[in-house]
Lab assay of single mutants.
Amino acid sequence: MALNTPQITPTKKITVRAIGEELPRGDYQRCPQCDMLFSLPEINSHQSAYCPRCQAKIRDGRDWSLTRLAAMAFTMLLLMPFAWGEPLLHIWLLGIRIDANVMQGIWQMTKQGDAITGSMVFFCVIGAPLILVTSIAYLWFGNRLGMNLRPVLLMLERLKEWVMLDIYLVGIGVASIKVQDYAHIQAGVGLFSFVALVILTTVTLSHLNVEELWERFYPQRPATRRDEKLRVCLGCHFTGYPDQRGRCPRCHIPLRLRRRHSLQKCWAALLASIVLLLPANLLPISIIYLNGGRQEDTILSGIMSLASSNIAVAGIVFIASILVPFTKVIVMFTLLLSIHFKCQQGLRTRILLLRMVTWIGRWSMLDLFVISLTMSLINRDQILAFTMGPAAFYFGAAVILTILAVEWLDSRLLWDAHESGNARFDD
């Protein structure tokens, strides 16, 4: 018995066209964080690309023209004298008006014999932002004059995390709450300039795509075929072959399989920071003279006294001054041990922890910024005066060393310790 099946006739004509040209192939790229070699397709503007294995951002879609970056830099340069030299806060102490600005706080630190601690604050609040705007201006002028731009481009990517104007702005709020127990506070004209400078700096850093600047100024022929001998440069993120001198053909720094002496430098910085954190938390970090009496505060006791007036601000200072430094030390110690013992479990967790400490590390400088600003506000000789204690130097040095330890660690070593050939990683 035959089955009668109805015929289905399409209502619209289906047209099949042959592909007349070869589909576009992607360029081969190595991930600078996990060293995976993959094919990167062509990316349009405002599109980002991520590593298929570790999800690290390979290409950032946010990109401004150099002219727009230069305009932002010149605007920031105009704001800087007002943000640093004009009063941020006014207080009335014992019937006398006192003005506080950024430069005055750094000068008070240096004047009291601790120039190293003052230079830490100076670099993060004044030096690094000033280098940022002058570097962008150098790129703008240098591109037109045919100057060598490689050193500036190499420095810009590392400079971003040292620009800490946003953290200093939080420190202004913390210092205001600490001082309000002794005097009446009012915002100064410099505060508005400083807030504007923070906003412009944040926007500029978020749109400063150094890798795209490398592509514009020093374009290189990408690798179009897969080759395990391809290496990625950690300076400019170019994937290719080393030249005859073993250097990256684009930025001219040595092109090595792994960062040289990464573990040794990381261990040295980490152990030194552990040693410095002990006096930083045991010795007094601030000293207040009130009517001839002397009151010393460690980091913890200062947080407890701050909690009596504002528990939320005390929580912020606790996280930045105690929780973050010790968390960074514990995480980095764990990561280094996992590399030495070739741990194969929990790779995803370790990668996330490394990215976390990379982002939060700079916030530990908050305590030094609060001390710097408070020193310029309260300084009335023996009637009422505020000065920093010996722990300030140890704390600042420990924070900087932990930042350097994270920067010096080559994250690809975590993958080397893991089993080879993993296309995915999980716990």
Rank of each mutant, 00 (worst) to 15 (best):
N4I: 15
N422V: 10
Q345Y: 14
F123N: 06
S321H: 00
T204I: 03
E212S: 14
Y50A: 15
A83E: 04
W359P: 01
Y218C: 08
T67M: 13
E212H: 14
V210N: 13
A115N: 05
T334F: 15
T134E: 03
L89H: 09
N101D: 10
L271Y: 03
G421D: 14
L191P: 03
V331W: 14
R258H: 09
F122M: 12
V331R: 01
F82P: 05
L169T: 10
T75D: 15
L156P: 01
L149Q: 11
L300G: 05
G95C: 03
V370Q: 00
L153T: 14
Y50M: 09
G246D: 08
P254I: 13
F194I: 13
S45E: 10
K12C: 14
W84A: 12
S135V: 01
P10E: 11
Q244V: 05
D297N: 02
R225L: 06
R245G: 06
I14F: 10
L37Q: 09
N4D: 10
I91M: 04
I322A: 10
L414C: 12
V163K: 05
T11Q: 15
F386R: 00
N422L: 14
G142T: 04
L197Q: 03
Q382D: 00
I383S: 02
L300I: 06
V331T: 10
F369R: 00
E161I: 13
S301Q: 07
V133G: 01
L282F: 08
C51W: 02
L78R: 00
I185P: 00
G346F: 14
C266F: 02
L354N: 11
A128Y: 01
T15R: 11
S420W: 09
T327I: 08
R62G: 11
R25D: 10
P52E: 08
L373F: 02
C236E: 00
D63Q: 15
L300A: 03
L200C: 12
L130K: 02
H207V: 15
W415E: 05
L78D: 03
R247Q: 13
V399W: 01
L278G: 10
D27I: 09
W140R: 03
A268G: 03
A196V: 15
I287T: 08
Q295L: 09
L40M: 12
L230Y: 08
M304L: 05
A100Q: 06
R216D: 07
I311R: 03
Q47M: 09
T11N: 11
F341R: 12
G95A: 04
S286N: 00
T134N: 13
S321T: 12
P129G: 04
E419M: 15
P24H: 12
S45C: 11
L159M: 02
G173E: 00
G171F: 00
S309N: 09
R226K: 06
L290Y: 05
S411L: 07
R258T: 03
A320Y: 15
L278V: 11
D114L: 07
S321W: 00
R17S: 09
K57R: 04
R30K: 12
I167L: 01
A71R: 01
L409G: 03
P254T: 02
G26A: 08
D426G: 15
V324K: 02
P52W: 11
Y289V: 02
S321M: 02
S308I: 09
M332F: 09
F217V: 06
L373I: 13
L278C: 07
T358M: 13
E212M: 14
I330H: 11
S321N: 02
A268F: 01
A314V: 12
L89S: 06
R144V: 05
S411D: 08
G127I: 01
P24G: 13
W162S: 01
L278I: 07
A280F: 02
G361F: 06
M365H: 04
R62V: 07
L306S: 00
I116A: 12
D381Y: 10
I287Y: 04
P390G: 06
R412K: 06
A83D: 04
G171T: 13
